[in-house]
């Protein structure tokens, strides 16, 4: 056992990378749930984003285009959910599960030609002096742009929900759609936009896995991150900064346990592998003592006629 082989600076830098897909998906789902819709299809939208981003990057040679494609793909798939739940009034839980199964299957089909291909890499931030600083440089100033984007998105979502009228209306729709309708707000329109935003975020989260974290395509490579994102939103009490905290905690424990495995610690691998899930959920359960923050209309379909 050789713990000295673990470099804390690299550890922190890599935990941020490990956390980003989860953070993107969770922030998107947070907005969806704040509008009163429960979309369990996060995993499906992520994997579709992963293959769409991967394929476009390989074909065009531009990871930037790939990320845009992944967001579009995720949003398109979420439109299927919109069709089922907002127009056909189908059950949201069943529709979300269907979306995940559909996404996993479709991505496997689309990805057949891309197994074993290596995608072009996205450039990393390289600021003249700052990126070369010891410790701070690798942690803060040497990542890919998407990682910074995810943090900025968290801040943006937090600010919009807290300080703007658009955010207030979104929360109102999620809280009591009947009352929002009576006051003259367009419940369906607002929800559809929220669902598509969630789809785009999940798609980008998926592409982050296939383009940056792992850089390759394998079937089912999102490996349950979408489900963790769903749990994260609940345990984060629908608060963006807590979602960030939870995502980084999950990323951190994932990276630490991988390092511990590599260092040959005498704990069975299975325990190490389950530790990120256990610790993240445990911490967030303790944090989420105030259950009252769940949007009151969450998961309920809305009929304008009633």
């Amino acid at each position: 056992m050789d713990l000295s082989a673990i470099n804390p600076v690299l550890l922190i830098a890599s935990l941020m990378v490990a956390a980003t897909p989860l953070l993107l998906a969770a922030i998107g789902e947070l907005v969806v749930e704040k509008s009163g819709v429960l979309n369990l299809g996060v995993e499906g939208m992520m994997i579709i984003g992963a293959i769409a981003g991967f394929a476009i990057t390989v074909e065009s040679g531009s990871p930037f285009l790939g990320f845009i494609a992944s967001a579009i793909a995720g949003a398109l798939l979420s439109l299927l959910f919109v069709l089922l739940t907002q127009y056909a009034q189908a059950n949201q839980v069943a529709s979300g599960l269907a979306l995940t199964l559909f996404g996993l299957g479709l991505s496997a089909l689309l990805g057949q030609g891309y197994v074993g291909v290596k995608p072009p890499q996205m450039g990393k931030l390289d600021l003249p002096v700052l990126s070369d600083l010891p410790v701070v440089g690798p942690i803060l100033f040497s990542h890919d742009p998407i990682l910074y984007f995810a943090i900025a998105l968290t801040a943006g979502v937090w600010a919009v929900l807290k300080y703007t009228r658009a955010g207030l209306i979104l929360r109102a729709v999620g809280e009591n759609h009947e009352a929002a309708h009576a006051l003259g707000y367009k419940v369906l329109k607002i929800r559809i936009m929220a669902i598509m935003f969630g789809g785009a975020c999940a798609g980008m989260g998926g592409a982050y896995i296939s383009l940056i974290r792992v850089p390759q395509w394998t079937e089912g490579m999102t490996a349950g991150i979408g489900w963790i994102a769903l749990a994260l939103v609940v345990f984060a009490s629908w608060k963006p900064w807590r979602a960030l905290l939870g995502a980084y905690l999950f990323g951190g424990v994932t990276v630490v346990q991988l390092n511990l495995q590599a260092a040959g610690v005498a704990i069975p691998v299975e325990y190490l592998a389950m530790s990120p899930y256990l610790i993240t959920i445990l911490v967030l359960v303790i944090l989420s003592a105030d259950k009252s923050s769940a949007p009151a209309s969450l998961g309920k379909n809305f009929h304008a006629s009633r």
Partner: peptide, 30 residues
């Protein structure tokens, strides 16, 4: 309703059209 409100018609509903999780001024702003 927006148009009615713009013309100076206001209504207090029988079943309150309020949002429980929001505070008083947020409810009024809506």
């Amino acid at each position: 309703p927006r148009q009615a409100r713009a013309d100076g018609i206001a209504m207090v509903f029988q079943h309150f059209s309020l949002f429980d999780a929001l505070n008083v001024s947020e409810n009024i702003a809506l």
